[in-house]
Design a binder for these strands. Structure first.
Length: 492
RNA sequence: CGGGAUGUAGCGUAGCCCGGUUAUCGCGCCUGGUUUGGGACCAGGAGGUCGCAAGUUCGAAUCUUGCCAUCCCGACCA
């Protein structure tokens, strides 16, 4: 009982932290607000990254890498963007330390080594990238420019949470340039769809595609599209964003191109990103009080095999059987681990791999070998079944795919049950404090009303869903006319 | 950054109010043995700047001050 997990009902935040720490995904570090991503957590990120990277390349994008540092003068070029991020930037002011003459063995910043111009550690890379694009784009023949970068960024947040909001985090950021407005908008929507597909098909996490209100829009964007997911406590988590930047950055960085008729115009831009925050989303979307539940498509280990034996003789017999079993599973493309360490007994391993969210466990003992079967247990439902060796790989593949579908549908049922219409202010308040989840309500479309609602309830507009049906109504706060519902929720 | 709580071995903890020998217990770890179908047992062993730094004192885990970290509630969070 060394690794008790706080139950969701007792303390949801603590439950989340326990899963991350005890599941071996990450550790706190010596740096405030920064975490160490441990091998098991990083393996999930690698799986996400590999799949997203494949999807980006399939849609015509290439990877590149830009500097971590952004000269302050470049950073401030696009005013709104700079303003939006200014209060959470880390800044490099010096480039050298020296030994402290008054304190042996200690170092101090060398006052002689002050930089002429401060360097901002990127909170996002628009500035450095658009400064670079200026030199890359002259003609319509250079467009579209479709580039993605895998990188780390730093945002000096006041309050951090493992994976959900850390000072430094890993992400990808796509930055594209286009000849026409329509093409850029199409790109923005395309990448939103890529994110939604990834979230639903790989993370098994249903999302709502929508567009942000002006208040929640990315600093420097004309429109921010997003995917919003619902966590098990009913709160919303923004899982990915795709921005239509209009010509804002092109104008700020003077990026013009000549069209076929040799007319000069500014290019149209997009940017889009997802981060290691997705791991937090994954954890909160599916897991239970016994530990993580990982979707098979992203699980670092899809199947763990646990031997159960009495004595060396049985162990050798099982090893032999498992060797061929492993070969069979690996050949079928299944990520399988054989845990034959003898310092823990089977029961301990069962609990451990449940904590780590391994989708399928195979237990094999002498009596199974006699009967020519294995015991197969699925993590999501805890259901146990017996399977023969014949065609086992096919059956496991089928099972993994069933689990993937089952956890998606479980999350979707929960999500759908927690989206409720509110037609009055009282109803709105009651839902927020009682049932929780997303609330679809009429809103008059003004920032003032949105601010007021946030002030009164802490709920914000998560998005205006793209598939919204037009509907006549009255704003729940101001009573002014409205043509559609916005989705409100308290958010991470 | 404001309010609250916490910090003792890898983890969880007792001791703190009321200062006084080698800082308690469990898990984990190491060695040997017995075990192994849901978190094994026996024996022996290792492991500690009591979050950090000052101060008070003959003497500090214990008292005082400052700082740091984590959690909760705010503020903040494209």
């Amino acid at each position: 009982m060394s690794k008790e997990i706080t139950s969701r009902a007792d303390d949801y935040s603590q439950w989340y932290n326990d899963l991350i720490i005890k599941g071996g995904l990450a550790d706190y570090s010596a740096v405030r607000g920064c975490m160490v991503i441990k091998p098991y957590g990083y393996a999930i990120w690698e799986n996400m990254r590999d799949e997203l990277d494949r999807m980006f390349k399939e849609t015509g994008h290439e990877n590149a890498y830009f500097p971590l540092f952004v000269p302050k003068s470049l950073f401030e070029t696009e005013e709104k963007n700079a303003e939006g991020f200014a209060k959470e930037c880390a800044i490099v002011t010096h480039y050298r330390l020296k030994t402290d003459p008054d304190n042996k063995g200690k170092l101090i910043v060398d006052p002689e080594a002050k930089l002429e111009e401060e360097l901002v550690i990127r909170p996002t890379s628009e500035a450095i990238i658009w400064n670079t694009y200026k030199g890359w784009i002259q003609s319509y023949r250079d467009l579209p420019l479709l580039i993605n970068q895998w990188a780390n960024v730093v945002r000096w947040e006041m309050r951090t949470r493992l994976f959900l909001r850390t000072t430094e985090f890993l992400w990808q950021e796509g930055h594209t340039a286009h000849a026409t407005q329509q093409e850029a908008i199409d790109e923005t929507v395309q990448m939103l769809n890529v994110y939604a597909t990834f979230a639903e098909n790989f993370m098994a996490m249903p999302v709502i595609k929508g567009v942000k209100s002006a208040n929640e829009r990315f600093a420097g964007a004309e429109d921010t599209y997003c995917i919003e997911a619902m966590m098990q406590d009913g709160k919303a988590l923004q899982a990915g964003t795709s921005h239509f930047l209009g010509q804002n950055f092109a104008k700020a960085f003077d990026v013009k191109f000549a069209d076929k008729d040799n007319r000069l115009d500014y290019v149209w831009a997009t940017s889009w990103g997802v981060s290691t925050r997705l791991i937090g989303a994954l954890v909160m979307a599916h897991s239970d009080d016994q530990g993580l539940i990982l979707p098979p498509k992203l699980a670092p280990i899809q199947v763990v095999i646990v031997p159960i034996f009495k004595g060396e003789e049985q162990k050798l017999l099982i090893d032999e059987k498992v060797k061929s079993l492993q070969k069979q599973l690996k050949a079928a493309g299944i990520k399988v681990k054989y845990d034959d360490k003898d310092n823990n007994r089977p029961g301990w391993k069962f609990a451990e791999y449940e904590m780590k969210g391994v989708p399928v466990r195979i237990a094999i003992g002498a009596r199974d070998i006699t009967n020519n079967v294995v015991e197969v247990a699925r993590r999501d439902t805890k259901e146990k079944m017996s399977m023969g060796f014949e065609g086992l790989a096919e059956n496991i593949i089928k099972l993994l795919s069933d689990i993937q579908a089952a956890i998606y549908s479980k999350a979707k049922v929960f999500r759908d049950e927690h989206i409720t219409n509110a037609d009055s202010w009282d109803e709105f308040i009651q839902l927020l404090d009682g049932k929780t989840g997303f609330i679809a309500a009429h809103w008059d479309g003004t920032s003032e009303t949105e601010d007021k609602i946030k002030e009164l309830t802490k709920a914000t507009i998560r998005c205006i869903p793209l598939n919204n049906k037009p509907e006549e109504g009255k704003c729940i706060l101001s009573g002014k006319p409205s043509t559609q519902r916005a989705l409100f929720a308290r958010a991470y």
